[in-house]
Structure formats: C-alpha cells, structure tokens
Computed example of a mutant assay.
Amino acid sequence: MSATIRIELNGRLFLRDPEQTELGRTIVKESIRLIDELGFEHFTFKKLAQQISSTEASVYRYFENKHKLLLYLVSWYWNWLDYRISYHTHHVADASEKLRTFIRILAGSHGSEPLEANVDVQALARIVVLEASKAYLTKEVDADNKAGLFQDYKNLCHKIALMVQEIAPDCPFPHALVSTLFEAARKHLFFAQHLPSLTEVNLDSDGATSLESFLNHLAFHSLAKEASAVGTTL
C-alpha cells in the first residue's frame, strides 16, 4: 500500500502556504507543468494565472516572485528525495549499500515506489535537471542562504556526507564529494540529453541512462583511493 507524502517547507519560501488551499495546490501543480513545458525563462505568473483561470494578483498572494516559486519547487524536490532515501535505507546497515541506494535514487531510478506525491514528480525532476542551478546562481544567493532558503538541500547533502564518513572516516572532503555527486547527476543527465559529446553517460531507447554507473564510479573510486592512501580497504 502506497503512502502519500506531505512535505512542509521553510515559510520564507512563500507568502501563504500553498498546501493550505485548493488554489495554492493548483498553483504549484500547474507551475510545474508550465515550467516543464515552457522553461523557467518563458514562464510567467501571467501565463500561470491564465492557465488556472485566475489572476496574477492571486498568484502573488502565495509567492513573492517566480524565483521564490522556483526555490519552493526545488526545495520540495530535495525533501521528496530525502523521504525516498530514508525509506529505502531505513533497514540497511551497510553504509556502502546506503550510498549505492542514494546514488540509484539520485540517478533517477524510481522502480517500485511505495511513496506517492501530490505533484508530478517526473516533471519536477526534469525541472530540477534544467533549472535547479538557477535557484542559487544569483546575486541574492548570500541573502537567500542567510534566510535559510537552501537548508533542505544542505541538510540532505550533510545526511549523505555522514554516509561517506561512515565508509571512509578519513575522507577529507565528504561534503565536497556529495555536492559533486548532486551536481554531476544533473549536469551529465543534461549533457546526455542535449550535449552528448561532453559525457560518456548515455540514454538508451527506453530513456534509461548509465548515470548510476558513472556516479558509483565517481564516488567509490574516490573513496577507494582515499582508503588506499591511508592503508585501509573498503
């Protein structure tokens, strides 16, 4: 039996919690659909309002601007990923197996998923690949960070970094390795889809990728070299 996940986010991401009203939930669902269809640059609150047969003013009651909406959606996705990782590693004792499970989920493998969401997570995953970097590659990044708007992403990175430290206690760069895995997952999936000469990651006819293999190589090759340097084995 599947469980539907309700995700709570930093209140500074919105002016009014969209989860509390039917209109708010519609704004979130349709914004995902429109950003996935149009791209973030061409997405506007005016187009969203037209799509939901409402007004721009009603959208602005929930989100200050479309950048805050993007932050909300990306943060929602990181929380969803966190739920999935926690669910699938809850009874796993071996840290290496936990890390492999995280990489499998990060690479986009959904498989038999007992968790359900009230949004289109496949479309949201595509948005994260294309648009997530725009959430923090801005002049306002320091102010947004001070307001805690990236805390969900940072918490998730720290959680996985603890797995890395459990595998290789002497690893000097656990957070750097984990954030590199996150960035590499998005970038190389994008490259495989649009700039294939920049990566060996590829898509097969069913849309599957070799991304999981690449990320496992990146993580465990790095950890094995670190273990070798200090005279231990993984």
Results as ranks from 00 to 15, higher is better:
C157M: 12
P114K: 04
A176C: 10
R16M: 09
K187C: 03
F150Q: 01
I127W: 05
H175T: 10
I85C: 03
I127G: 03
T55L: 06
A132Y: 11
A185M: 03
P114W: 05
K134N: 08
T44E: 05
E212N: 05
L9Y: 03
E97K: 08
E19G: 14
D144E: 13
L70W: 02
S86V: 11
I27S: 00
A219G: 01
D144I: 10
T101H: 01
W76K: 12
D82K: 14
W76Q: 13
H67Y: 09
H217L: 15
L15W: 06
W76S: 09
L69Y: 05
E64H: 06
F220C: 04
E212V: 04
H42A: 13
S210P: 02
K154N: 04
H91I: 00
P114E: 03
L34G: 10
I32A: 03
L34P: 02
K134E: 09
E97R: 07
V201Q: 00
P172H: 09
F190K: 12
E37N: 07
T4A: 11
H42W: 07
Q122I: 13
A57P: 08
S58I: 10
F214V: 07
N145T: 11
W80P: 00
V128W: 02
N65I: 07
L203E: 05
E97A: 12
L130R: 15
T55P: 02
T4M: 12
L203D: 02
S205N: 05
Q165T: 11
L218C: 12
H188L: 12
A57H: 14
S53I: 11
T55Y: 10
A185T: 00
N145Y: 09
H42R: 15
A168M: 11
T101D: 03
S213V: 07
S109W: 09
E41P: 02
N216Y: 01
V28Y: 04
L106R: 03
G231H: 08
G39L: 11
E19M: 11
L130G: 14
K29S: 15
I35W: 02
S96V: 09
K139F: 09
